[in-house]
Structure formats: C-alpha cells, structure tokens
Design a protein around this nucleic acid. Structure first.
Lengths: 296, 296
DNA sequence: AAAACCCATACGAAAAAACTATGCTTGATC
DNA sequence: GATCAAGCATAGTTTTTTCGTATGGGTTTT
C-alpha cells in the first residue's frame, strides 16, 4: 500500500522505487500483483511514467487516509500503554505555562500523584491540538482555536485581559502616565505584533479590535513569538499587546498598562482533551484544573 | 493485523491459529514481533490463553475499523472502475421496483444509455443503505430510513399513501362497503403485519398510527414481508396495510380501500446516493429520477 | 501424580520479496 | 530519420520473511 502511494505520487515506478529505497523491477511486480489481486486496473502505463486510473486515484485517496489511521492507531495504543503505566503527557504553550493557575495546578497534581510520571511538552496551540488529535499527548493547555477536531473537547479555564506593553521612551510617556490606555491613543504609535504561525488567533484578534473601531494600526515589526515582541519593546522600538500573564516575566524597561476597553481584548486559556479518553490520570488532572478554575 | 484481531477475539493464540488456518507457533512469533516493533506489550499471557492489555484493546478496536476501511477502499476502487466502464449498479427493494415511476425511470435510462450496463440489485432498504455506504452499489431506491450514514444523501422521489388490504370475507364487508376506511373501524379486526427486518420503518409507522389515536391493533400474525402478508390477506385471515403500489400486483380476493385519514399513513420512496459520488452515469440517473419526480 | 492445555523456543522448509541483468517501447535529440 | 535516453516489463537468482514440525516448560484439572 505504501508502495502504491509512492508510485502515484511520483508518477513513475522508477522514481518511486528510488524513494522507497528498492529497485524498479520488484516494484513493477508488486503493482502488477496488486492489480491482479483486486482485479482492477489501477495504473495506465504511459511511455513516460504512469498515471493512476480513476479507480487508482480513488484507492490512492483512501490509502492515504488508511495509512494515517494506522499511524494514529499505533499512537493511541502507545498512549494507552503510557497512561496505564502512570505516565501523563501534558502539552502547554510558552504563554499558558506562565500562568500561575496552570503552574500551580501542575505542581499540585505532581505532588498528589507521586507515583505518576508527568511530562510536559511545549508547542504552539495549533500543534498541540493536532498532537492531541493524534494521541501523541493526553491533554493540552492552550489558547482557543478557531477550529479543531470534533473529537476534542475544549474547556475554558481562565480568561485573562490583554495589557499594553509600553517602552519607557518619551514617545510613549503620555500613555504610560495614565492608569489605563485606550486603543485610540495607541492607533498612531508604532506597534510590534507577533504572528505566531502556531497560534494565529491572538494576532487576528488584535488586528480586528483596531479595525472594528476604525482605528489604524501601525505595525512596524512582526515577530514569530510574543516573547520576542517583548524583547523588542524593551529596546524602545514600539509597543505591543500581550496576555497579562506575560507581564510578570518581562519587566525590564517595559511599562504595562491595562486597556480602558478590555471587553473585546481578552485571551483565554483552555484545556483541550480527547472526548474518548477514559484514562484515570488525565481525567483527574482535568478535574483538578476545572476545580481550580471554578475557585477563581 | 488480521492475526492480532483473531487472537484478541479468540482469547487464545492456539484457537486463533485454527481460525486463521495456520499453526500456533508462527502466530506466537508474529505476536511477539508485533509487540517488539511497536514497543508495547499488547497481550498478557495467562496460563489459560491470552488477554489484551489496555493498549492491546485500543489497538484491537482501531484495527477493526482500519480493516473495514481497507475493504471499503477496495470496494470504492472497484465501483469507480465499474462506473468508468459504463456500469451502474442500482439497488431497489421489492416494493420500490414495483412503483411505475421507478420502473419507467429505469427503462427510460436504459434506453437512453444503450452503451451502459445497468444491473439491478434487490435487497431490503436497510441493507441497501449499508451496501451504498460500502460502495457496493451506486444508487439505492429505498424506503426512508430512521438513520443512515451522513455520507449518504436521501432525496424523496414519490410519496404514496398507504391503503387497506381487506379480505373478501363477510367479516370485513362493513369496511369494504364504504369508499374509504378509518383506522378506528379497523381497530378490532384481525391484522396481519409484516415485520421486515430489512425495512423496519413501515412497521413502526403503522403501530404508531394506531397507538397515537389510542386505538388497539389486534395483530394475529406477523410475516417477514409485505408480499407474504398480502398472500395471507387473500386467505381471509385478516387485513393489512400496504403502500398503494403493491395493490396493483396482488388483487386476487383482496379489496383495497384508501384510508380516511391518510396524512400520517404515507410511505415515501427515496433515492439514496453517495454525497461524494462524482460518477457521470449515477449523476444522470439521479437527475432523471428527480426530474420525473417533479413532473408528478 | 498424571493428564490436558497452552504458550514459547528451535530449526528446517516453503513462499514472498528483492536484486541483477536485460529486453522492449516510445518520445527526444541531433 | 537514426540514435539516444527514459521507463516499464521479464527472467533468473538470492535473500528475507513466513510457515510448519518437533519439542520443552508452566499451570490447571482430574
């Protein structure tokens, strides 16, 4: 099956053989026996390579999915094995792990379950969700997603407001002087935005907040992560907007101010989990996190 | 993979080997190499047989699905192959093929597509839907289903009313004398119902219609098909209720009368098709049928 | 205590898959 | 238009995988 996929994708038995690390004649033979066993012509032989027949194309599409399913099945088995051995893989992002509530929940959990081995995986929110869907991890503490697999469950743990990170330079002093800042007062100042490919939601949210109020956003720099954006802020280049949690970690030559209009500028931290997961450990961690969320 | 499934289902390597037509030692070896390659313990060896570990169980469940998917993929390829060769498999039930509209549509289609080979498969509605979902057939003309795969599309072609089939015996003469019959007048008479396991909807519909009006239904006989029920009606045993189409075919010593309250006693004929189907022939047949439906 | 049951190991045999060498067809090149 | 290159197919051999037979060890049953 893997062979057939390679042949279709390469459009050539010879090239597919190279990719598979085998010789061309055996691959030709394999394709022939495959066609014989199914009783269907799958490939039309051209003088220059091969092309799948409609039936071959249908089989190719299905094969891709089946191969992916097999991988996933193995992952699932591995995860169940881990879980049963008292091993929990929790996925977090750099920003969510910074939040005291999350940190506290994890440390409490580890204390309460001395026998359990907890490993933390750090990735972007997007990657965490696909890793979760592929059963590579058991739980993910991530930012909300625009779309994710319907086999996942998403529960909001905390909603934190977004704050303005201002450089100490004089250019921003009129903002820093007040107790809070309006979006309008930021609209003409140089902004540093982070366009994290692994977590694209917050970026869009910020851009939308400005455009919704008809304000212009002067983006002088885009960075691949919020942390880097804050580093640039401390150089005085411009301001940025970050979830409040991050303000505790980077305070060197940065002044943080809340927004006057916080309602549409909030960022949640969510717990993503597999709906089908019946594992005891992950269930307990989930309940612990939900409980701490309610105590807020 | 097939081997692993057999082992789990039999709970014994020895018995699984029998079922697979191979010897026990090679199967033991296969299971061992499988576990080694995945790096997971899948089976716990008991003194009396084997039992899957949680991970093994997860893999078993997934494997079942994957094996089914593979079968389906092959079917799909076969169907595409057929379709491309101008071969259309249409599924019908005994009752839907009796309807003149359907018959006419099929004969028109065959005439218009002389080059096409059309084969008719006759099964119960339930089986037709699963055959369609498995890509064994291209289209199904069947009775409405309570639930079916979301990959299928269901379009109502005709809605026909259900009529009462009365024996000629004197016991039923007061019903047969009028132009139409009420459910109430039937409620104390002996009924013959057909509980077709392959088409359970109509049975439920009839039972509900009576119970909704608080009427009792005296079922003296259940048969596995409507045709057989009509045969019993002609012996004078009792009455039954059938879609109008069937009344044209069985008229020996049976009197048909419409119901006074036809609204909740109707039976549709639907065209089921695969949403993903892009084949030309099946598309044309579908459009032909929808067109004849609209001309009604 | 012996028998029955079942899994694991060991080794030889059969089958499947892969490699090398080579031929054949077809489009590209000069 | 003859040669060349590209790519698939076939043939025969070798290697790898899978399967079968024989046998041993542990556990429950009688």
């Amino acid at each position: 099956m893997r062979y057939f996929i390679a042949v279709v994708e390469e459009g050539s038995i010879t090239h597919a053989a190279e990719r598979l690390g085998i010789q061309q004649p055996p691959l030709s033979a394999q394709m022939k026996t495959l066609e014989q066993r199914l009783g269907i012509r799958l490939l039309t032989r051209l003088p220059r390579g091969v092309v799948p027949t409609p039936a071959g194309n249908a089989l190719y599409e299905a094969s891709l999915k089946i191969l992916a399913d097999i991988d996933k099945a193995v992952n699932t088995a591995r995860r169940v094995d881990r879980a049963h051995a008292g091993n929990l893989h929790i996925g977090v992002t750099r920003s969510t792990i910074s939040h005291p509530l999350i940190k506290h929940a994890i440390s409490t959990f580890v204390e309460q379950h001395q026998h359990a081995e907890v490993s933390i995986v750090s990735k972007g929110s997007l990657e965490l969700c696909s890793a979760l869907a592929e059963d590579e991890i058991d739980l993910a503490v991530a930012r909300p997603q625009e779309s994710y697999s319907d086999r996942l469950r998403c529960e909001t743990i905390v909603t934190e407001s977004i704050v303005v990170a201002l450089p100490t330079s004089s250019k921003f002093s009129h903002c820093a002087s007040g107790p809070s800042v309006s979006l309008e007062s930021l609209s003409e100042l140089p902004a540093i935005l982070y366009r994290d490919s692994t977590d694209p939601v917050l970026y869009k949210q910020i851009v939308r907040a400005f455009s919704n109020q008809g304000l212009s956003l002067v983006t002088i720099q885009e960075t691949p992560s919020a942390h880097l954006a804050l580093d640039l802020v401390s150089t005085g280049l411009g301001f940025t907007l970050v979830p409040q949690t991050l303000s505790d970690r980077y305070s060197d030559r940065i002044i943080y101010r809340p927004l006057i209009e916080p309602q549409q500028m909030q960022s949640s931290i969510c717990l993503f989990s597999s709906r089908s997961d019946t594992d005891e450990l992950s269930r307990e961690f989930r309940l612990l996190l939900l409980k701490s969320s309610q105590q807020l």
